[in-house]
Amino acid sequence: MSGPNTDYDPVEVTPLKADQVEAMREAALTAIADAADLEALKQVRLDHAGDRSPIALANREIGALPPQARKEAGQRVGQARGAINQAIAARQAVLEAEHEERMLVEETVDVSLPTTRRRRGGRHPLTLQSELIADLFVAMGYEVAEGPVVEAEWLNFDALNLGPDHPARTMQDTFWTEPADDHVVLRTQTSPVQARTMLTRTPPIYVVCPGRVFRTDEYDATHSPMFHQVEGLVVDEGITMAHLKGTLDHFASQLFGDGITTRFRPSYFPFTEPSAEVDVKCFVCRGGEGVAECRTCRGEGWIEWGGCGVVNPRVLVACGVDPEVYSGFAFGMGIDRSFMFRHDLEDLRPLFEGDVRFSSAFGTEI
């Protein structure tokens, strides 16, 4: 029986010869040193330290050696692989530091330069004001009613006690559509929404109607051919002027601040009887000391706000409501005007010009 082959020289295995292993090591170190960036170093790692690299293939040859030859070959290859991995790690640290420095230089932002970033849009102040008013009335148990802005003449005028020959029609400069025989208008107030509500529902009715309205007014600091109104309607048994006064006092205090009340001045509207102009106590001077110098109310102590009254029985009859059983009240005021009061604006034109700088100045109040 033959003994172990003690004369085997592992150096004779070509991939494991000392000069071959050293050549692999030097080739890898040179390639690592020449890697100019992280992407190049990644390729060097694959070529000289990956599973198919020369040093990895040489390492596989160790298993084919007899036990007494494996130790020396393993040490030789292991030292070379360790040197390659250390060199890769060191070069990667250097390249990463260079990359970060380059990014700081190339991606530097001069924060003192004027920005080219577009301003973020905001919800329009009149939209926020309309929603605030609607929320106030919803909290009182009302519902929000809406209707079309292109309206039938009958609903805009006749149903509201404004017949074809009624002189009050001349008080409202109306946009008429063509042909005129269609009898269609751009609504001059949101009152047609109230008429639609009474025609389709059975009392009790508690609704508030915000929306756009149109009149052929000149466009200036205080007038616009398109503006916004909010109107309210209550139809129920036993409704009186006292209910109207209490409602508007609460509305005024919620919109302009605690302690703000209203006063009524006799007036005329075809759709209410009796009718009144509504003034709100000046929320700046509060109608007290210093009223003469107040710019908001111009020394009056009160600000004209809108119109109101008890619903005319003729309107109830036209909309199918029995005036012997039910009564009601209605009111209306400009949302744009209320907004100008709250924010001390003297010109309403910025409300309609679409400048985001104007809208963003009022935040995101809801």
Rank of each mutant, 00 (worst) to 15 (best):
123 R>M: 14
124 H>V: 04
125 P>Y: 02
125 P>R: 01
125 P>D: 02
125 P>C: 04
126 L>N: 04
126 L>T: 01
126 L>K: 05
127 T>N: 10
127 T>Y: 07
127 T>A: 12
128 L>G: 08
132 L>S: 12
133 I>S: 02
134 A>R: 11
136 L>K: 03
137 F>Y: 15
137 F>A: 06
138 V>Q: 13
139 A>E: 13
140 M>F: 12
141 G>I: 00
142 Y>M: 05
143 E>K: 13
144 V>L: 06
144 V>C: 08
144 V>K: 04
144 V>S: 04
146 E>D: 13
148 P>S: 12
148 P>Q: 07
148 P>G: 05
149 V>T: 14
150 V>Q: 03
152 A>I: 05
152 A>D: 15
153 E>S: 11
153 E>L: 10
154 W>G: 02
155 L>K: 14
156 N>S: 08
156 N>K: 01
157 F>T: 09
158 D>E: 15
158 D>W: 08
158 D>V: 02
158 D>A: 09
159 A>Y: 08
159 A>E: 04
160 L>S: 11
160 L>E: 05
160 L>G: 10
160 L>W: 06
160 L>H: 10
160 L>Y: 10
160 L>N: 09
161 N>M: 06
161 N>R: 09
161 N>S: 09
162 L>W: 01
162 L>P: 02
163 G>T: 14
163 G>W: 11
164 P>E: 12
165 D>C: 01
166 H>V: 10
167 P>M: 08
168 A>V: 11
168 A>N: 13
169 R>L: 07
170 T>V: 10
170 T>M: 13
170 T>S: 15
171 M>F: 14
173 D>Q: 15
174 T>Y: 06
174 T>F: 04
175 F>D: 00
175 F>T: 00
175 F>G: 01
175 F>E: 00
176 W>F: 15
177 T>H: 11
177 T>G: 05
177 T>L: 15
178 E>Q: 11
180 A>F: 13
180 A>H: 13
181 D>G: 00
183 H>T: 00
183 H>Y: 01
184 V>M: 11
185 V>Y: 05
185 V>E: 03
185 V>P: 09
186 L>R: 05
187 R>D: 04
188 T>A: 14
189 Q>M: 10
189 Q>R: 01
